[in-house]
Design a protein around this nucleic acid. Structure first.
Length: 405
DNA sequence: GTCAATTCACATGAAAGAGACCACGGTCTAGTG
DNA sequence: CTAGACCGTGGTCTCTTTCATGTGAATTGACGA
């Protein structure tokens, strides 16, 4: 990167043109891409298919909960099975509809109202983004769906997110939808990243929603390598990948928790890096660089996208560590934060709120916060920055600009 | 020395408020024939 | 007479504040050996 910055523009474009390209089709390394086959998921796919088969006879399939860490192919497999099934149903003239909703999408489906509204919308009813009572939206949904006998499968991706934001009443209402419908049959697929997600649920909901449960275990390094091999075939030209690169990439991703998405990300970024360097091949070195870059970009991105108050807190934490080596506690951070607010002319939030913001930053991986009891000296959160040291100053500058604007 | 009570400095929960957004229905106004 | 502008009401949603309760080990102080 540093090298390219010093070369003249002409040079850069020339080398880019002259160089043999590395990517054949970058698309197949991105998240949007749906592969034809899903390696190492035969069992799960088989289970899913068995569960949903009854819908082809217009019987209500069981509700399913699908668990697994990110990048283990949950969404992919579910979509794969259900699209296949709906195509088959369409051929035979069987009324089966599949609706997919990602509950994590902000402003789309992260509250009860929006979720039902989104369902209704997918069935062709126009629902205003706000303003209606929630049961009104339920009624609109019922009307749109109940006109004829049909099977409907609602996929709720990242359902744990919905629950944590909006409580589990939603699920209770959802599981009772069938009793309000005369013709249509509705069943649910809940997809969750959190394995312990059902622990906090009401028992009735748990049994209602989780009639069947499927667990997607993480990929191991070997399986990841298979996946990478397959995708690499489509996305890169032949011979541009040095031996051992895929294995290393797989090993890096397996080190986290067998996240295929991350593995593909790494490979893509490594490809981009080597292309930029005008290297004819992707080398193992590029995987290392990519690993660093992916992590760094994620951090920057996360910090920049925070609302102003969270950024202020982050800034306060960095300011603290500029002065001190001892670990920071909530009280320390709060007083720095208050000082910052004063100098910027912003009304400071209460400590209660800051405490929550710190928890959020921790979950995003921007900082580490651990509750430690210091006995007589209280129970505090020990806050440390989880930044590689070389990113510190850059991030600080970035934040400063952001805050001043 | 041992043990339970105390204590600190917050963490964590619950509830409710503020302010933004929006739909709907009713009322008012200006323009039209 | 009617289309459009303009309220008022009631709804959701996010971010906060307020009030209340919980927490875990260092410290304290009573107790007995």
């Amino acid at each position: 990167m540093m090298i390219t910055a010093q070369r003249s523009l002409d040079d850069i474009f020339n080398t880019f043109l002259e160089n043999k390209k590395i990517f054949r089709n970058k698309e197949s390394l991105t998240e949007r891409y749906t592969p034809e086959t899903i390696p190492h998921r035969d069992n799960e796919i088989h289970q899913l298919a068995t569960i949903f088969a009854p819908s082809l006879r217009l019987e209500k399939p069981s509700n399913v909960l699908v668990f697994g860490k990110t990048g283990t192919g949950k969404t992919l497999s579910v979509n794969h099975v259900l699209t296949f099934m709906s195509q088959k149903a369409a051929l035979q003239g069987i009324p089966v509809s599949i609706v997919y909703v990602n509950c994590k999408m902000k402003k789309v489906a992260d509250t009860e109202y929006r979720l039902i509204a989104e369902f209704a919308r997918q069935f062709g009813v126009s629902v205003p983004p706000t303003g209606l009572p929630t049961d009104e939206v339920y009624n609109l949904f019922y009307e749109s769906v109940d006109s004829k006998k049909q099977v409907i499968v609602l996929i709720l991706d990242e359902i744990d997110h919905l629950i944590s934001r909006a409580g589990d009443d939603i699920l209770y209402n959802l599981t009772r939808i069938n009793s309000s419908l005369k013709n249509a049959l509705v069943s649910f697929v809940g997809i969750s990243n959190d394995l312990r997600f059902t622990e906090h649920l009401d028992a009735r909901i748990k049994s209602g929603l989780g009639e069947e449960e499927i667990i997607f275990s993480p990929y191991n390094a070997l399986q990841l390598r298979d996946i990478l091999k397959e995708r690499a075939l489509q996305s890169f030209y032949e011979g541009v990948i040095e031996d051992g690169v895929l294995a290393k990439c797989a090993a890096y991703a397996a080190r986290e928790h067998g996240d295929a998405r991350r593995a593909l990300d790494l490979l893509r970024v490594a490809g981009e890096l080597s292309e930029r360097e005008a290297s004819p091949k992707i080398l193992e070195l590029h995987i290392d660089l990519a690993d660093e870059k992916v992590e760094k970009d994620r951090l920057y991105e996360a910090v920049i996208r925070q609302p102003k108050q969270s950024q202020l807190v982050t800034y306060a934490i960095m300011a603290y560590y500029e002065e001190q080596d001892t670990p920071a506690f909530t009280g320390d951070i709060y007083s720095i934060y208050k000082g910052l607010c004063e100098s910027l002319g912003i009304k400071p939030l209460t400590q209660r709120r800051i405490s929550d913001l710190i928890t959020e930053l921790d979950m995003l991986g921007i900082i580490n916060a651990k509750v430690i009891s210091h006995g007589r000296y209280g129970r505090k959160r020990e806050i440390t920055l989880s930044l590689p040291p070389n990113t510190f100053s850059k991030l600080q500058l970035l934040l400063k600009n952001e805050l001043e604007s």
